[in-house]
Design a protein around this nucleic acid. Structure first.
Lengths: 341, 341
DNA sequence: GTGAAAGCGCTAACAA
DNA sequence: TTGTTAGCGCTTTCAC
């Protein structure tokens, strides 16, 4: 609150005045330059303490030769989502080691929000961006990268734009999960997924179809639903197929909230121990349910590690061509996926 | 990357040059001043587009009369914890409406980390701070507030420092939860809690004791354990009391990870339908377990709302004395807490 | 309505 | 080793 005159922070100039030195000497002390006379260092430190001086780093960065703000931007689907927050935390830890702070924001699958947030982050001159994208066209980022902004995509690749990308083996893992159900004797396997516009959702659906195909099972579209997480339609669909003649004997749910909806629906029909279920995505405490939920989970730690290292390297000037990393998933059998037909 | 000469962002000066106007006119256009000749506005906008100019807000804030950075700092226990991330998300939404970005960080119950993070946030000149504190002494913040930094505490109050605070009715709600178990016929109720140094943990323990006292039940310390979340000791303790002669018939678990540990232990003994359990804190999908977990939950949305509004008001110069808000909790009976003795 | 000059708090360059 | 000056990119002041 600068408007308050008794509430103004002292500047480097005042520290210089109080300590009887120059601002440059104060600056040197602040930056740990070793060639300063220890006596002056003492004086400066005393003045700093006396005035409760706190350097303004944003002012310093303005002139500083590297011009860095030591801040990175992180765009997530939703900060409160378990996958997002685990990713956020892992990246926070890595950023801290590099002396970077993280400005994170939720996009809620809204492309406008993606552009808007990226715009404000650029306006703040963050040093780099890690993005779980939601837009279907990232050509607009070309200008930003040309202006020197390092950008790494995680969980989903960019569209119409080439950049470092870290994703998981969505298709392969979904195929394996579906095959797992097939191997337990199922031939009528429902697919419940997120909006197909989302990369991970469409990839996982391809994996599901591929598994059916390889097992010479026919794709029955009446058992397929692409919904929006948490929306009633998933619930309606599940209730509808359970009331139809064509009841599936197994379900592959390709995202955490969809899996939750499926579990609720199964429970409400008393079918949770009769119909097999395999989910894809983080699901806290999947082991506590009865039956435990068999899940394909993502190696968030490795994803965060690779993405962060890539970003930091670009921030340090690395100029090699964009890298694409596909991280294997883990499968944990806990019971729900091992129910036999 | 300023070191890269072909990667430098254009400045307001270049926009002025290209558009054939002055930097002040460009500044006016940028800030939407309406008294600018539309012809000049056109020219300026054309130059901005042509150069892909992005104003540097940190530079602008330096001179700007209010000196604000439009950033707030948010210190949480752990960004990936369900309670923290829900709080974070709620605050993010409110901050966005005010045009503020959020710099969030995890403290992991480490007081050093609290001081360190606050220090870097002040150095960045954030406009305000919302803190879930972990330190046992906040006197060090006095200087910062005197220098004009608005500070609001949430979930836990400050120590040796008076500031706006938003907490829940920890003691009362814990007492009610314990009484709920007593009302179902239990007299040997175990208490499992977090480290007592944590405000919420000690308050909830007081509530537990108060309920016993009012029901004329004796406090049996062999049924009480103050552990650290996720640590094996909670698990060991539970196993020990189940193997003792003094087995409890009910458990009050005062924090989410402790509740999880309790559920796991009960399940491993096949006791989840025999021993009653009430938890305190967020627990995703508590309704999906069998039995459903009866929980005291916190009104995170209201907490975030009140804390944010308080902070924003202080940022706008509000000078009234510190407010203390105690938010009621909600109790949801789902089965685990209604098991009778 | 417009622009030149000063200055925000700091670091870089260069001199002493 | 220390200090002076210029300047980072912008907004403010104030004259035109």
């Amino acid at each position: 609150m600068k408007s308050d005159n008794n509430h103004v922070r002292p500047t480097i100039r005042e520290v210089a005045a109080v300590s009887g030195t120059s601002i440059k000497t104060v600056s040197r002390v602040l930056n740990g330059v070793t060639t300063v006379d220890p006596v002056l260092v003492q004086k400066v430190n005393k003045a700093i303490k006396q005035l409760n001086y706190r350097p303004n780093v944003t002012a310093g960065n303005l002139r500083r030769v590297d011009g860095r703000t030591n801040t990175i931007g992180l765009l997530l689907k939703d900060i409160a989502n378990p996958f997002s927050s685990a990713l956020h935390r892992a990246i926070e830890n890595l950023a801290r080691e590099e002396g970077l702070d993280v400005l994170a924001g939720s996009l809620d699958e809204q492309p406008d929000r993606e552009r808007e947030l990226i715009s404000t982050l650029i306006t703040r001159r963050v040093d780099g961006l890690i993005i779980v994208p939601t837009s279907s066209d990232h050509a607009y980022l070309q200008k930003e990268r040309s202006a020197g902004m390092p950008i790494v995509f995680i969980d989903r690749p960019p569209n119409n734009f080439i950049a470092d990308t870290v994703v998981v083996t969505n298709r392969l893992s979904a195929e394996q999960a579906t095959r797992h159900l097939i191997n337990h004797g199922h031939t009528r396997i429902a697919y419940l997924g997120d909006d197909q516009k989302i990369f991970t959702a469409s990839e996982r659906f391809l994996g599901y179809k591929s598994a059916l195909h390889k097992a010479k099972l026919k794709l029955d579209l009446s058992l397929v639903h692409h919904g929006r997480e948490g929306f009633d339609d998933v619930d309606h669909f599940i209730k509808a197929i359970f009331n139809s003649k064509n009841t599936p004997t197994a379900i592959f749910a390709s995202q955490n909230f969809v899996t939750i909806t499926a579990i609720r629906a199964l429970k409400s029909h008393g079918l949770e121990k009769k119909i097999a279920l395999v989910g894809f995505d983080e699901l806290p405490f999947a082991d506590l349910l009865d039956p435990g939920i068999s899940l394909v989970t993502q190696d968030i730690s490795t994803m965060a590690n690779i993405a962060s290292r890539l970003l930091f390297a670009r921030m340090h000037g690395k100029k090699t061509k964009a890298e694409f990393h596909e991280i294997p998933t883990m499968f944990t059998a806990r019971g729900s996926g091992e129910i036999k037909n």
